[in-house]
């Protein structure tokens, strides 16, 4: 039962190859094997969204995906968002609007927001709230997060 499976995953633009146990969850592959610890684990029932990453451009809960399922696919994590020192507009938005307190839910929240803005570049507040309803934040009461995403959407809008 201790077989491993070779996988190749493109993570934040970089090809990563590993031999993994089939039961290794994608989130643990990212955190333990690749040392990308920005993706967090906040629950064990696929509810909280702290582990959200993009898999082939779509938000997924990486605690509910086996690493072997990501073989041959593209993963984007919070660490891949900024271009060098240039923050992504969502990161700027969260900073500007105080969209985080303890910061634990933040990477997942930002990745969910990225998915939302990809589908809907100018959501109203209700759509923003619906769009992040797969992510639980205990600190902010969500209001500054909504402001942050609105702020980012405005920055990202074509001039």
């Amino acid at each position: 039962m201790s077989e491993t499976v070779p996988i190749t995953v493109r993570v934040n633009g970089r090809e990563r190859t590993a031999a993994v146990a089939p039961r290794l969850l994608l989130v643990h592959f990212l955190r333990e094997s690749l040392n990308l610890t920005g993706t967090h684990v906040g629950c064990d029932t696929s509810q909280c969204g702290a582990c959200t990453v993009l898999l082939d451009g779509r938000s997924v809960k990486s605690c509910t995906v086996f690493a072997v399922q990501a073989d041959g696919e593209e993963v984007q994590t919070i660490e891949g968002l900024a271009a060098g020192d240039d923050l992504h507009p969502l990161q700027d938005g969260f900073w500007e609007e105080h969209g985080l307190q303890c910061g634990y839910c933040t990477p997942g929240m930002i990745m969910s927001a990225l998915n939302l803005l990809r589908e809907n570049p100018s959501p109203d507040d209700a759509r923003i709230r619906e769009g992040i309803s797969g992510n639980i934040c205990r600190c902010t009461g969500y209001q500054h997060i909504v402001n942050a995403i609105r702020n980012a959407a405005e920055r990202m809008a074509p001039a």
Binding site: L36, G38, E79, Q91, F94, W95, P107
Partner: peptide, 9 residues
Amino acid sequence: DPRLIRGLA
């Protein structure tokens, strides 16, 4: 915030 929003905390 910078370390938190970059996943570097």
